[in-house]
Nucleic acid binder design. Structure first.
Lengths: 243, 243
DNA sequence: CAGTGGTCTAGACCACAAG
DNA sequence: TTGTGGTCTAGACCACTGG
């Protein structure tokens, strides 16, 4: 990777510096929660003024890529998905249980050729295969949600051996596969439980369920996970803040 | 309203300036899409450097309060809710119809004492009354969504006389009642259509519907609208981008 | 204490819009 | 041409952290 800024470019220096820093993070040259060089160091190495460095860093803070602590330094932010999980509000549960996270049980897992839809969504080549994991998420042994995961096999080799019954997936993608999830598209529809879904979720056929499709992306807006979930209507309430 | 910045305050000058500008906009002293004074003018009148003004304005652009055009000036942004409407993706319709917006028919409208729940949500006093409007939103004469609106009567006096069959509501709140909607909380649940809902929406009882509650806020995070909507499950697909 | 980021200044020069 | 915002510089001083 070539370093340095192009002073003849039409692109602003602060912007070039931002791209350079993001590339460093995507390459794992600078890791999560590690400090990056100080303003003065960056200004010296790239031969720009401290003000320009400040501008670049503050923009990256704004984008959620970095965070800064006065007196300590500038750190690489971990792309956190806390917010996305908070979107699922459980109710009919005790107040103290708000923070609980469901565990899950893997029902099946297989490597297969993807359907046309999945291949398009994950932008796979014609030879690429996907890891398909079907799991049941439960809280207090009560079924909450049936979930199908599709992952590109070449990115997540061996993932079917990982125990995901008590862990969140995105930290695993990040730690074990160098693939932090930076954002996601989510689609919701109401549906009716058919016999099969009803029996797995322990509800009656014909009851309301929420059907959620999610496409999760890593750096560079590269899609790396597709998941289709079916949740019990009486256990989920989806909350969004529109700004 | 007292003007000027407090140079002895611990609050940064750029922050004070931001608050001052936001107050001006909330007071309608500076109106939507109007230019506000230039950087140099602001710097002169508040006796701070242009750099400090730049910082304040750029933060406000970031918050979506202002927008700037090189060579033209700095403008008050209109709080636009395009995004929230885009969240409802229709499908099973022709491609050219993406941009169409449903019309609506008012089924009933009345001024009543609010329920306890509504009073809490809209933070009303014990004597305040609410305007309740029930309407059916349709596309091509096909029913899409049944909606109950609750508005504080004192803020929206005479709103029941306004023709809302072909207009969006939020532009009306803004233009006629000086109450732009700046953000909203939205809650979704899947449900089953009961006989009444089914007959209004022209579907069968037992089919899937989406139940949406929305609390919409104006400046100062003041809640000014509560709406509960029931949409046909086969006509809505809700899309969220999680960042 | 030295080093970090946070605020603020007073300029310079550029790109763009509009008359 | 004038006035606007956009970029960039080279400083100053402050508040906070940690040894």
């Amino acid at each position: 990777m070539k370093d340095g800024l192009d002073f003849d470019s039409h692109a602003p220096l602060y912007f070039q510096l931002m791209e350079l820093i993001k590339a460093r993070i995507a390459n794992h040259a600078w890791k999560q929660d590690e400090t990056i060089p100080s303003e003065n160091e960056l200004a010296a190495t790239y031969e720009v003024s401290v003000g320009t460095v400040k501008k670049a860093l503050s923009e990256l803070v704004n984008e959620g890529v970095l965070y800064r602590r006065q007196g300590k330094g500038t750190f690489v932010a971990r792309p956190d998905f806390k917010r996305s999980f908070i979107r699922f509000f459980r109710y009919g549960l005790g107040a103290g249980e708000e923070g609980l996270f469901p565990s899950s049980r893997v029902l099946s897992s297989a490597v297969t050729a993807p359907s046309r839809k999945i291949r398009d969504i994950l932008r796979l080549g014609s030879q690429d295969r996907v890891l398909v994991i079907k799991r049941l998420r439960t809280l207090h042994d009560e079924p909450l949600m049936l979930e199908d995961l599709c992952l590109p096999e070449k990115l997540f080799r061996g993932f079917d051996q990982v125990d995901i019954s008590r862990e969140l997936l995105y930290p695993i993608y990040d730690a074990k596969y160098n693939t932090p999830i930076t954002w996601a598209d989510e689609f919701l529809e109401p549906r009716i439980a058919d016999d099969e879904v009803a029996s797995v979720l322990n509800i009656k056929p014909g009851e309301a369920v929420i059907f959620i499709e999610r496409i999760a992306y890593t750096y560079g807006d590269k899609p790396v996970e597709f998941r289709a979930s079916i949740g019990r209507g009486d256990r989920f309430r989806y909350h969004i803040e529109i700004r």
